[in-house]
Write a protein that binds this DNA or RNA. Sequence first.
DNA 1: GATTGGGACTTTACCGGTTAAGAAAACGTT
DNA 2: AACGTTTTCTTAACCGGTAAAGTCCCAATC
Lengths: 342, 342
Amino acid sequence: MTTSRVTIKDVAARAGVSKGAVSLAFNHKPGLSEATRGRIFEAAKELGWAPNLTARTLAGSRVDVVGLAICRPARLLGLEPFYMEFVSGVESVLIERSCSLLLRLVRNVEEEVGLQEAWWRGRQIGGAILVDFRLDDPRVAAVERLGMPVVAVGHPSLTGGLTSVWTDDATAVTEAVRYLAALGHRRIARVGGAAALGHTATRTAAFDEAAGALELAGAWQVTTDYSGESGARATRSLLTAAPSDRPTAIVYDNDIMAVAGLSVAAEMGLTVPRDVSLLAWDDSQLCRLTHPTLSAMSHDVHGFGADVARTLFGVITEEGPGSHPVPTPVLTPRGSTAPPGV
Amino acid sequence: MTTSRVTIKDVAARAGVSKGAVSLAFNHKPGLSEATRGRIFEAAKELGWAPNLTARTLAGSRVDVVGLAICRPARLLGLEPFYMEFVSGVESVLIERSCSLLLRLVRNVEEEVGLQEAWWRGRQIGGAILVDFRLDDPRVAAVERLGMPVVAVGHPSLTGGLTSVWTDDATAVTEAVRYLAALGHRRIARVGGAAALGHTATRTAAFDEAAGALELAGAWQVTTDYSGESGARATRSLLTAAPSDRPTAIVYDNDIMAVAGLSVAAEMGLTVPRDVSLLAWDDSQLCRLTHPTLSAMSHDVHGFGADVARTLFGVITEEGPGSHPVPTPVLTPRGSTAPPGV
DNA sequence: GATTGGGACTTTACCGGTTAAGAAAACGTT
DNA sequence: AACGTTTTCTTAACCGGTAAAGTCCCAATC
């Protein structure tokens, strides 16, 4: 029993009208009496018909697919709670517009540029979400050349003229450092993310500035690849210095590395937070699963994703560009931060 | 400077042939001399043209998109390293066939059935990957009725006549229990996943059987929703019994819950593995980031995803290989398991 | 009563490919 | 030289929609 495909023609025949009329009805366009409109919808319902998106796309109407290319080594990505959470936030908005997400992992920015271009020129997507901006990101120019609607996740200083949504990393870093300093810490380190990423640079600068302003006795920063392993390595090297010369508090750029740091401290016989305070970032549920629980700069990642998706729809429907920040991560103190040990 | 779209017509004109010829060339179909074939490819390259997938799909050729609907509360999903890793494995294969993944989070199976049907009937996808099978899963019938190519991730006993790829959960559970028993544990508990899922049932049955065969003094099982929180709750309730009456080893159905369990043990003043041994499942990098590191039933999730994707291509191209298992998870002992305390 | 102006639909021309059927050379055969 | 066969392309008809332009019919205006 092959379910022969139901097309607009069948619906038109059933409702006793032309294809065009059905199209008008389903796009809520004027030019049809309420009576026929009703007949058409009824016929469609009886036949279980819904417009074929492929045909609709080809015919030049809107495309109901949004592209998202994530550029990280695949294995690494598997571990980032951030992205899954972000994606689920994006989805939550797409779903109510009955849009889909086209997801692809790419190896580098160049590949992404090619992909986005292919997607756009092939009318595969109606717009895209761009993440992980770096300095002088080639995507800015590429996207502007294509005239493709996008929303960039990143600070306007990185995303050029693109509509962007960003978190105020500088303020958040400053707040984190001030908090630790207020607890009495004078030697603070930061285990940063990938050096190539723009927001890493922002955070690094903000950390330096805050450390300077507070006249800390010691301020270290290292960059990593965001993996737990590199976080562990960084922590180990920070903590091997003599007790009087090592940081008493460490800020991490994500939560995976903070978890790794916690484990390194334990392995070195240090008690958290007595011997060293740890502060995570992004605050996924993971931070509440460790012992002690991890203090974090927390952040509604799901809501962030939703916000980005909504902004993209704004761009697509020409409501015009307009960058805006989402709420700055707020400090959520838990068990991993305290005044430096007695 | 609007990049006017390059179409097959432009390529045809440039190569001095008809549209049809270009189509033949790009689909590697016979009926063209090597000379013209070459001219066509050259023209296409010069113009930077690639066939428009939307048009190609509409014209009745195959579709280069694979669907994947994941059915879990979005918030929960953000935390499952398993899925990100699985998806990245799938992608790794899709990418070399220049296919894309259409990903959607759904709330329940009924919604998924509707979605898959809409996708298929709308020619949005060329096939799908089905995950999280439950007993009497409605997707089996739905998909068979549609005649849609799919590969089911789950044991054949759950996936009916669908081509499936699965891990031998029963053997893995048995091995896990035997290992703990061999260490000397006589009271073992298992913190399982969602009760509604088929593989949870499989594991539960296997655990019971193994416990019986080994004549354990105590065997507990609970089901959860896979979240760290529910894992913590389960662990807490298992460990509050009197020391002589509580499990000395706990097996978890994923790694998040095992991490949570570790933290609960610490919070209760129990030392792992002296007071209680913990064994995780799925073994993401997370298991190596804790202290002590988590022993786990490990499993190449990335490779698993890749295998599933390859199998799907087999089904789509009618090469239709039947169901097959992927390697059974193997025990990776780390720091969280040891003989029961002195 | 002829003219005008809309509503309510229908026609028809695409969108950018695929593909079956047709036509024009090139080739071997008797 | 006439005649099937291939080989190589071209034509034209879809695929399932959208949208601009066209057709009808009827009420309103002059």
